[in-house]
Amino acid sequence: MKYTIMVNEGPYQHQSSDTALQFARAALEKGHEIFRVFFYHDGVNNGTRLAVPPKDDRMLQKEWSELAEKHGLDLVICIAAAQRRGLMDASEAKRQGLNADNIAAGFRISGLGQLIEGGIESDRTIVFGD
């Protein structure tokens, strides 16, 4: 089965990113395909590489990056939501005249069309949020 997963809340503030991550792992373990994970609303904050949680806590951003690397996941951060909240990749930072970027490995920034395409292309679309 082919899945698109939507994550609508930031890490730590709400459990939705944790639940989505556990769901994604379980789906992959069962041999399902994850077509795309789309991060929207404050969910874009899952894609920062500048988070430094306490050592005894989980590192959600890193866990997404690692899962993406291991399984070749497509982690997409919505550009409109990212611009509002200060999530930047190098090219977007340059375009906006900003002197820093903060996107984590394995994530890419793209448009909302990627979410709709996920819904069209996947057998199941699951939304995690608040």
Partner: peptide
């Protein structure tokens, strides 16, 4: 909360997809 506004933003993009 921001959900209503950002939902509308998705809808406007969705319109281009012939669904």
């Amino acid at each position: 909360t921001v959900y209503a506004l950002e939902s509308l933003e998705v809808v406007l993009i969705a319109a281009a997809f012939e669904q």
